[in-house]
Design a protein around this nucleic acid. Sequence first.
DNA 1: CGGAATCCGTGACGATACTG
DNA 2: CAGTATCGTCACGGATTCCG
Lengths: 135, 135
Amino acid sequence: MGSALRSQLEAAGVSPECASTIELVRDVLARVGDKWTVLVVITLADGPLRFTTLHGRIAGVSQRMLSQTLRSLTRDGLVTRTAYAEVPPRVEYELTPLGRSLSDSVTHVVHWVQDHQAEIVRNRQEFDGGDLPTP
Amino acid sequence: MGSALRSQLEAAGVSPECASTIELVRDVLARVGDKWTVLVVITLADGPLRFTTLHGRIAGVSQRMLSQTLRSLTRDGLVTRTAYAEVPPRVEYELTPLGRSLSDSVTHVVHWVQDHQAEIVRNRQEFDGGDLPTP
DNA sequence: CGGAATCCGTGACGATACTG
DNA sequence: CAGTATCGTCACGGATTCCG
């Protein structure tokens, strides 16, 4: 399996030396593509925020998912988690330089989507509707 | 929900005029992040390929998932599907200019992952292992 | 050959309740 | 305030089978 996958990346212009890169690429892209990660990242782009603030700003996210997303991001070193020993407790999350650099790449894709969204929507309508029925 | 989401994009530097952009962004990113799309796209980067060839080159993909992925990509206008009325039947898939331009953006992220994979792996090990146990 | 249809297991996700 | 724990649902993804 590895060699075939390696050739995939070679075709994409990725250096062939590390076969497991593809898995990590897929892993990171899956993270980026998941439901909440992008929203968390771009929300944190302004500066550090605490859990509840984040929870309030990102509409529709459950505590469970937010917590999980933040832990994954922290694990990968994309955000830092800082807990202050206070009463009431306060925890702040902040993008690391690594997280910010990923954010830049992702923003690039976001802008791509924005630039081509009309075309995509039109393509979908055309595909779904086929030609208009003749009633 | 829409207004909160809109502010997300504003924070990310995206123009505020279209509230539904965020959903499309998430949608497209989810597609990009899914298990097979990236592999299909970079495999098609060389040129048009037929279904079975694609199925052979992408290790581990089932016919179902490949078919599904290709249909989604076709629906969005990222690939074209050309069926030749022959025996045996032949169907070729090819990246559209739109698909190629997305491919470029995604490749950018792929390269980012490649550049930072060592750091990510190290971060994960550090996070998972914590400090080394003392046996 | 190129799929679509069916069945089915797994786990992602949301809602809720509880804890330090 | 900042989570963890538990549970129920359901969509994703794989294997198999059937059709044009």
